[in-house]
Every structure is written in structure tokens, then in C-alpha cells.
């Protein structure tokens, strides 16, 4: 669980860096969309989805789930393990 969470946090951190969004604190409770969270737009969400699939071989968005928080992404992989 911790390994998965660390991997997900690392992926999100790397993407945020690529989008020039530095200084953002991310944890399991961080929401993906909206101003109070990461504020991902549709293309950023697609990039996150594709990067997660590239790393783990599957991703919650393509599986039809629409996670709202980082923790829900982690839970998707924990449930599949």
C-alpha cells in the first residue's frame, strides 16, 4: 500500500513539475480537480491517466472509475493487488 502510494505521489509530483506547478503539497486527501485541490484540467487528467497506465499497466480512469482524490487512485491499485 505504501509502495503504491509513494509511486502515485511520485508520478503526480513529476507531472506537476512538468506543468510548472511547484510548491504544491500532495497527499492522499488531495482532490484532483477544483481550486482547492490540484485543479487538473481535462488534458492534465488524460496525461495522468496515461502515465498511471504506463507505470502500472492499468488506470482507474480507463477502467470507468472517476477518482476524485489521490487516495482513491491509490485505493484502485490496492484493490487490484
Amino acid at each position: 500500500m505504501d509502495d503504491v502510494q509513494n509511486s502515485v505521489l511520485k508520478i503526480i509530483g513529476s507531472l506537476l513539475e512538468g506543468w510548472d506547478r511547484t510548491g504544491v503539497t500532495v497527499d492522499a486527501g488531495t482532490t484532483l480537480h477544483g481550486e482547492e485541490g490540484l485543479g487538473l484540467d481535462s488534458l492534465e487528467t488524460a496525461e495522468l491517466s496515461a502515465t498511471l497506465e504506463d507505470e502500472f499497466g492499468s488506470d482507474p480512469f480507463s477502467a470507468g472509475e472517476m477518482p476524485e482524490t489521490v487516495g482513491e487512485i491509490v485505493a484502485f491499485y490496492a484493490a487490484a493487488a
Partner: peptide, 8 residues
């Protein structure tokens, strides 16, 4: 392929 390109 676009998904792969987005990730890479």
C-alpha cells in the same frame, strides 16, 4: 498511441 505519447 496518443496515451503512450502523453506518458512519454
Amino acid at each position: 498511441v496518443v496515451r503512450n505519447m502523453l506518458a512519454h
